[in-house]
Simulated assay, not measured.
Amino acid sequence: MGETIDFEQFDVVSDNTDHHFARLNKKNETSDASSDCFTNESSDVYRRIMKEWKILAHNLPETIYVRVYENRVDLLRAMIVGVAGTPYHDGLFCFDIAFPPDYPNHPPKIHYCSYGLYINPNLYRNGKVCLSLINTWQGNKNEKWDPSRSTILQLLVSLQGLVLNDMPYFNEAGLEIFGRGMYEKRARAYNEYAFAHSCKSMLCLLQRPPQNFQGLVVAHFRSRGRAVLVACNDYANGRVRVGLYSETNEPPLTSCEKVSEKFKDWMHVLYPRLFSAFIQCGASLETGVEHLSIINESPKNMGNGKYKVIVKKVVGKIRKIYASTLKTRVKN
Results as ranks from 00 to 15, higher is better:
Ala227Gly: 10
Leu24Arg: 09
Leu123Trp: 04
Lys331Ile: 14
Tyr245Thr: 02
Ile49Pro: 01
Ser324Val: 15
Asn165Ser: 11
Gly127Tyr: 06
Ile110Gly: 03
Cys37Tyr: 03
Leu270Thr: 00
Gln211Asp: 10
Asn16Phe: 15
Glu41Thr: 11
Thr4Lys: 15
Val13Ser: 04
Gly91Gln: 05
Asn301Glu: 10
Lys26Phe: 09
Gly243Val: 02
Asp36Val: 07
Gly305Met: 11
Ser223Tyr: 05
Phe278Met: 04
Leu159Gln: 09
Asp234Glu: 11
Leu285Cys: 09
Glu261Asn: 13
Ala22Glu: 08
Asn142Leu: 11
Arg48Ala: 08
Leu326Asp: 09
Trp266Gly: 06
Phe93Thr: 07
Thr254Phe: 12
Leu164Val: 08
Pro100Ser: 07
Glu192Asn: 01
Lys185His: 14
Arg186Ala: 13
Glu176Pro: 12
Gly179Val: 09
Arg319Asn: 11
Val45Ser: 03
Glu184Gly: 13
Phe7Gly: 01
Ile119Ser: 02
Val330Arg: 13
Asn105Arg: 12
Ser150His: 01
Leu216His: 02
Lys109Arg: 14
Ser158Ile: 07
Gly85Lys: 06
Lys51Cys: 13
Glu172Leu: 14
Glu290His: 12
Thr325Val: 15
Cys232Ile: 00
Ser31Thr: 14
His197Trp: 10
Lys200Thr: 08
Ser246Tyr: 01
Val314Tyr: 06
Ala22Asn: 14
Ser31Cys: 13
Gly116Ala: 10
Ser260Glu: 08
Cys199Asn: 09
